[in-house]
Design a protein around this nucleic acid. Sequence first.
DNA 1: AGGAACTAGTACGATCCTCGAACCAATGTA
DNA 2: TACATTGGTTCGAGGATCGTACTAGTTCCT
Lengths: 151, 151
Amino acid sequence: MTAQPGPTEDELNLGLLLFIPYRALENRVFEALARAGFDDFTPAQARLMQRIGPAGTRLTELAEAAQVTKQTAGHLVDQLERTGYVRRTPDPTDARARLVRLAERGTAAQPVAAAVVAEVEDEWRRHLGERRWGQLRASLTALREITDPYR
Amino acid sequence: MTAQPGPTEDELNLGLLLFIPYRALENRVFEALARAGFDDFTPAQARLMQRIGPAGTRLTELAEAAQVTKQTAGHLVDQLERTGYVRRTPDPTDARARLVRLAERGTAAQPVAAAVVAEVEDEWRRHLGERRWGQLRASLTALREITDPYR
DNA sequence: AGGAACTAGTACGATCCTCGAACCAATGTA
DNA sequence: TACATTGGTTCGAGGATCGTACTAGTTCCT
């Protein structure tokens, strides 16, 4: 990335501007999950798990969405399966494929994570004010149109 | 097909909303640097290098800013030093410390990275429009006040 | 049909990243 | 001067990630 913090504090490199709040949110969620007893998984596993849809998601799809190789995704799913967060079930529409879906421990963790995210969003909303918050969300969503290859 | 993130398309998890553009930008910068001949460093190294100030930065500071341990930071700086991107110089104000600063290869890569960032920013600005773009930047900067422990 | 081309996933091995524990040397403090 | 703190390093272990190569099932083309 860039380096060069820039002339002023406010002119901070865009990459960092995006990364800093992302990381802050991730940390908060992690911390809360650990406190709730879900302390046996790693950030990489979580980033993958996050992409699992309610009806299950194929490994290849997970890999693409998380931007890792199939091997990496498979490796992470192995671990998540061993610790009871996800389960692999056959895909009825394709005998080669299997659907990765949340298992008991995974579904148990989900509301905890969701609650923290909501809490953090509230804090940010209060900090920015309702209007600016809505604009931020809208702009980020709009940005997705040109930055997210997997919509 | 199966990927159904959750509520609605527009209600996408905030973490992802931040992460997606971040990752897109990072990828672009990486790609451009590789094309310019700077293909001998890794994302982790880049994330650290990014935090080096123009006057040099201490290892501990780098570690904190990048949110990795001192050992990890040291490891990465070792590599960056070996490949000629950074240099360690003694810190005149403290004999224990050393300042990590960009070396030739590092300063050579900087403008290339800056150019791509500017290019991407332009694309995003065009996509959002001048006004929304300014608001986005401003909001992210404001968010830093409550999410960045190392200002 | 029948075979070629493609896709989902796995296996192996190498490299990189990250951390915890333990340690040394310089600095600050009582 | 002793004690605690801080900047960094060393060592060793476990995770994460990838490239290459492979198997099994699916799709496409003729």
